[in-house]
Simulated scan of single mutants.
Amino acid sequence: MDVGIIGGGVIGLLTALKLIDQGATVQVFDQPMSRPPASWAGGGILSPLFPWRYSAALTALTMNAQRAYLALDERLGQQHLPGLEVSPSGLLMPSVDDRPEAMRWAARQEIKLCMVDAGQIEPRLSGEGALWMPQVGHIRNPRLVAGLVRLLHQAGVFVEDQPVLAIERCQHGWRLQTPRGMVQAGRVLISAGAWSAPLLAPLGLRLPVIPVKGEMLLYPAAVPAPRCMILRDSGYLIPRRDGRMLVGSTVLPGVFDQRPSAAAYGQLESVARNLWPPLAGIEPEAHWAGLRPGSPRDCPFLSEVPGNPGLFIATGHYRNGLVCAPASAEIMAALIMGETPAIDPAPYSLSPSSSSPP
């Protein structure tokens, strides 16, 4: 096996697909029941929230996400597989305080963003000043994970439902210890989200990635949905094509507990009423939690692990895993294959200081 990938979230799966397209042999290891990837749990907005508040390094990973997902959606269709439901509904942001910064950022990036009365886009919000990004879309992220798994299956790669308990260097690469025995790979990618750090600790490396719990509510199509996504500092609402509405999300750092909580349920109900008043009195039909991989910086770790040739890391995307995934996978596939990525990988390196022994 050329490459072993630990973690079956969107970044690990997309990287696997790109490596297979380049002729590499790949095996993916995952624990979807006990350690579900953050990829399925979020909203699928194809932009960072308030994108001008992030670094240039993060922006560089997000610019072509929608185009990449449209291409993947077409590929799924050609294989007669369910699509991603890419919906370019636009993103409306009422009552934003730092509008001048937003406008300057949009001009630099040549992104369409304008100031409007919110009522021009959604009549129920008339009277509020807002920022409007008409080209921002969203996808059904559970469909994305399922679609990638099916494309890999068609290529003869089946995601192994077993954990990697430890990794160790060997003469011809790396050995992965699993409950079913040892597996050898020339190169290894750790893309296990919030669970990545423990795999590096036995090697004497400290990865500053922690779990950040986030919870969501899904509302039934009981009242008319807004025409677009709505984002405020308190949260966001995403209208799905079937009339359902997704409301998110909470932030609780340092917690590995994946159980939905009553406190988050109440908080999100309040957010829902604030974002879309017709939801007052409507009972959500689903409530779930996921664990994001958070880190001290706003861009992920995408690099070879210092002092460990052939061992690579891709994690720390926090709330931007889905929108960064296509570019992150491009970078990782290039690095693993010994090629130069189209995006400069330097800002995403795992420096010796950030991976030093604790």
Rank of each mutant, 00 (worst) to 15 (best):
C114R: 10
R99A: 11
E122R: 06
V96T: 08
Q109S: 12
L113Y: 08
A118L: 08
W105F: 11
K112T: 15
S95A: 09
S95D: 08
A107I: 14
P123N: 11
V96G: 07
A118N: 06
I121E: 01
D117M: 01
C114S: 12
W105Q: 15
K112P: 05
M103R: 15
C114T: 15
A107R: 11
L92D: 02
I121W: 02
P100V: 06
G119L: 04
D97Q: 12
W105K: 09
R104K: 12
K112D: 12
R124A: 08
V96K: 06
P123S: 08
M103T: 13
A118D: 05
D97W: 08
E122P: 05
A106P: 12
R99C: 11
Q109L: 15
P94L: 06
A106I: 13
A102I: 01
V116E: 03
Q120N: 05
L113P: 09
A118V: 03
R104D: 14
A102C: 00
I111H: 08
M115S: 14
D98N: 09
V96I: 08
I121C: 09
Q109T: 11
P100C: 10
M115V: 10
L125A: 10
A106R: 14
E110Q: 13
A107T: 13
S95I: 00
K112H: 14
R124C: 04
A107P: 10
I121G: 05
A106K: 14
E101G: 13
S95W: 01
A102W: 01
L113S: 07
R124T: 03
R99M: 08
E122D: 11
P94C: 04
D98H: 05
I111T: 13
C114N: 14
D97S: 12
P100Y: 14
S95V: 06
E122H: 02
Q120H: 05
P94S: 08
E101K: 13
L92K: 00
D97F: 09
K112E: 13
P100K: 07
I111E: 15
A102Q: 05
C114L: 15
Q120A: 04
V116F: 03
D97N: 08
M93Q: 07
C114P: 03
R104Y: 14
D117T: 00
W105T: 10
E101N: 13
A106N: 07
G119D: 07
E122L: 04
D117C: 00
I111G: 10
L92A: 01
R124Y: 04
R104H: 12
